[in-house]
Design a protein around this nucleic acid. Structure first.
Lengths: 333, 333
DNA sequence: TTGAAAGCGCTAACAC
DNA sequence: GTGTTAGCGCTTTCAA
């Protein structure tokens, strides 16, 4: 490094302790002294060594975000919400992407312990999220709930039920599902599948396992899944994708087969992706950036002593061109 | 913290210096000793304090990424490429989003100095990027070139020229441009505008300032810009958007006006956005994730003594439905 | 090959 | 209100 607290102390004619207090705005410092020290520090262009102060104080001023992906829309958007809040507090944002591997490489409490004083887990399977709790710093999980841990979620069951019910209300009965096969128990995927089943049951429509395909929560996966559904002897007349990006892939597949979303096959997703409007995709929207902001606020709050609570944010059905109402039989007749 | 290097040393019956060497794989350690120390450390679940070792060694094991956005596709994708490389090296990734503010809040060399030993600047205006060089650690900039600084760029002039020439080759002459007004000098935006002008000149088509609109590099901005162009007395028959996301916005606007991209108005962007294929948008694609990976490799390389060099990656014209060839007059006749 | 010991730059008691 | 002084936990000469 260059210039240290001692240089400032010497130059200002005070002790290092005073410099430290003055610069950090602690009480018990004469205003005159404080200002003088500040001026000297500025002149010298002094910046405290983060390592030294963290080592000495035990505070890290850092929040880690553990996420399965950095590029997929949901995660990128969550991250920007988080970053917005953290940066406003001058906190460091340490990002760790675990990849979408089946058995994701958790950074391990080991690597994190002592390095951060807060962590936000985005859409991790509940067991993993829970594991992060053992680091002993405030934790907030997005997309899952863990007892005694702060979280921000939508009601996944309800969102899926809404989406499915929307299709049913349009008169569809052969409804396909593009989900994810390797869904860990207690993940959003599981809940959404449950919501789907619930809606079907409520409507008295039997769930046909052959109308379900794995889309792996990606655009490409969604395309493959839709292609598989279209290859079934009895094609679905409507499809519910557990996420908008899978629905996008499904759209691509439909087009390749010369089918129009909304006219030939109804389609709905969950997310409220930025481009869902442009693609005219019906969806159940969630306030993604807000979810990130809230999670960040939750860790700040826990530092102030707040009790960790689960926060549930609302979703909104956005019916668009991909779920056109069936032509009115009366009007037709 | 919990267990320290001294605990390990005591338990293993060696000095802390030996523990340090053994665990870091330094030479001059008896294999026996090394293994014994490793075993003890594992048993104790010892993790070295990052702060302490960074303070003592001066190495930070951290790379900062400075980016205008975390959620926009280009930046999110770049980031995931960067993260991939850094995580493979067990390096910390510190993310700082400066927002798209007109006068972005650079984190300041001050905040970074001594905290990181490498920085990657994504799509910052050249002056800002250059400023980051003064931190004194390896730097790599994406989307700009700075003398004596590592960088990874596409040939923005050429990409824009290609896009524009593609429109011209289709027979268009009244070509609109959706750009960005506040383009700092030497930004990708400037170069792309230059490429546009060059292509027009080469074709002997005068550039009409009234056919240019500001899209601010966002979807919404692109929509507004296109709406403005459509309101001109002489509508463009083709539009070149400096980025795919602006082109997406333009598509939305076209649709609202009952116009079809590719049939009523030709449209092309730059990026090769994930969803450009689905939207049937013609584009000049750049290998975005690769650009992130390369930038990360560049800082690793500089640590090993590599001389910083500018890397230029290739782009590919992807002609799709939004730039349909004009119907062949001969065939028509 | 290993150990002793002096820091790295700052914070936090505790005195004054 | 301010200074003294131990550390924080590790790395790194320098000796042995």
């Amino acid at each position: 490094m260059g210039i240290t607290i001692r240089d400032v102390a010497r130059e200002a004619g005070v002790s290092t302790a005073t410099v430290s207090r003055a610069l950090r705005g602690l009480p018990h410092v004469d205003p005159q002294t404080r200002e003088h020290v500040a001026r000297v520090a500025a002149e010298l262009d002094y910046v405290a060594s983060a390592n030294a102060s963290r080592l000495a104080s035990g505070r890290q001023g850092t929040v880690a975000v553990i996420t399965p992906s950095l590029s997929r829309w949901f995660f990128a958007t969550v991250l920007s919400g988080i970053s917005e809040v953290l940066q406003a507090q001058d906190l460091d944002l340490l990002v760790h992407s675990i990849g979408d591997a089946p058995s994701p490489s958790l950074p391990g409490e080991r690597r994190l312990r002592g390095r951060v004083d807060g962590v936000i887990a985005v859409a991790l399977p509940t067991p993993d999220a829970r594991r992060l709790g053992s680091i002993g710093v405030p934790l907030s999980v997005i997309g899952a709930t863990v007892p005694a841990v702060a979280s921000v979620t939508i009601d996944d069951v309800e969102a899926a039920r809404t989406a499915t019910a929307h299709l049913i209300s349009l008169g569809h009965e052969r409804i396909g599902l593009i989900g994810s096969g390797d869904v860990a128990t207690d993940s959003a995927g599981t809940w959404r599948m449950a919501g789907f089943r619930a809606a079907m049951e409520e409507a008295g429509i039997p769930v046909d396992a052959r109308l379900q395909a794995d889309g792996g929560f990606t655009v490409d996966g969604g395309e493959t899944a839709m292609a598989a559904l279209l290859a079934r002897p009895e094609r679905p007349t409507a499809v519910f994708a557990l996420a908008d990006e899978m629905a996008f892939g499904a759209m691509r597949s439909l087009r390749r087969h010369g089918l129009r979303p909304g006219q030939d096959v109804a389609l709905i997703g969950i997310d409220g992706h930025d481009l869902s409007g442009l693609l005219d995709l019906s969806t159940v929207a969630q306030p993604v950036a807000d979810m990130g902001r809230i999670a960040a606020e939750q860790v700040l709050g826990q530092w102030r002593g707040d009790v960790p609570v689960p926060v549930r944010v609302p979703t909104t059905l956005m019916a668009r061109g991909s779920t056109l109402p069936a032509p009115d039989p009366v009007a037709l007749g």
